[in-house]
Design a protein around this nucleic acid. Sequence first.
DNA 1: CGGTTAGTACTAGTTTTTTAGTATGAGACC
DNA 2: GGTCTCATACTAAAAAACTAGTACTAACCG
Lengths: 128, 128
Amino acid sequence: MRPRSSTLTEQELEIMKIVWDHEAATVRDVYEILLERRKLESRTVAYTTVMTMMKILEQKEYLRKDESDRAFVYRPAQPKGTVIGAMVREFVNRVFNGSAEPLLVHLVEEHNLSKEDLEEIAKIRGRQ
Amino acid sequence: MRPRSSTLTEQELEIMKIVWDHEAATVRDVYEILLERRKLESRTVAYTTVMTMMKILEQKEYLRKDESDRAFVYRPAQPKGTVIGAMVREFVNRVFNGSAEPLLVHLVEEHNLSKEDLEEIAKIRGRQ
DNA sequence: CGGTTAGTACTAGTTTTTTAGTATGAGACC
DNA sequence: GGTCTCATACTAAAAAACTAGTACTAACCG
């Protein structure tokens, strides 16, 4: 049997990023941002699709919903850093068998990270 | 319509990693390694499943197959670095909107990368 | 108040991804 | 030569991921 993804799927992540950035959001808020974005790629999305996705995210406990005047207001149930951290870990496991160094090398070589960038990060680490 | 993944899917990647590590492999080679691995998680896989996956990888031009005495011999059609690099880029785009620094911070904070590790990487970069 | 708008619940379809069965053939084995 | 093993081709189906329609309700608007 095919196992279910242990982290956020692509669409789930896109929605979560919007909610994180807004602290709280209704289905309509997310819907409108998504629609605007997709216009650029000549795609579209239905309001009910967004609703369904957000309901799933609620069931998975990534979102929490509060009753409000009119529409439900959704808020993140987990901090962004925690969730993204888990995604990074899953990626490192899946692609690099758990070791982070090779990923680092890729980042340096292909993403224009300067020596200075690294030194700055190293300082953060050094302080700990 | 749901778009098709632009990079390797999870199972595709697992197979590709095996072939990369072996330079060349038959369906049976891959099948046996996969079976051994899955035993540990009480899962299993059918020979024909592996065959189907490798055929798909051939169609997607990640693998090339050579006629041989008995079974086809599959070889990577693209170098590991190139493909993994594309996966890193896709991940950085999807999760971090294209900027690599936040990923770096996650790596440092959660994957026990020492100041020394970073300095070593920085040297590589410095040489360029 | 009657119609329109905006929301939810429920249901269900499509595509991708993953999985595997069945038929068939070539060569090894006796 | 007959059978057994191992390979491929073809087919298809289940699960996950994504998408969206329809029915119904509340509230807003004239």
